[in-house]
């Protein structure tokens, strides 16, 4: 991702600049969280930035589902281990 735009802008360009910077920050946050998830941390919580934040909702659902599946797999493995012992 590009870093935050620090150049001075005027008028509408400044609005565009600040909006772009917001997007960059948001994407960076998402990347950071996705990296945590990639490293196996399913305790990550992704907060919706607005009511229409579908991306965050989808990512949050994904992490929650992964968490459920992993827990189920662990329980099953435990059961198999106990049963076959």
């Amino acid at each position: 991702m590009p870093s935050i735009i620090t150049d001075h802008c005027n008028g509408d360009f400044n609005a565009i600049k600040s909006n772009l910077n917001n997007l960059i920050t948001a994407i960076n946050t998402i990347i950071e969280k996705a990296r945590l998830v990639a490293n196996g941390d399913l305790t990550v919580t992704l907060t919706k930035r607005s009511e229409n934040d579908d991306l965050m909702e989808a990512l949050n659902d994904m992490v929650a589902q992964l968490n459920t599946i992993v827990l189920q797999i662990m329980e099953t493995a435990q059961n198999v281990s106990t049963g076959s012992g």
Partner: peptide, 22 residues
């Protein structure tokens, strides 16, 4: 069953990669 136990063990180890909320 021994094989199954070892498979379960390795599965457990593999899945331990994830840090879960529980």
């Amino acid at each position: 069953s021994e094989e199954l136990a070892s498979q379960a063990e390795s599965l457990h180890k593999a899945i331990a990669f994830f840090k879960t909320t529980n």
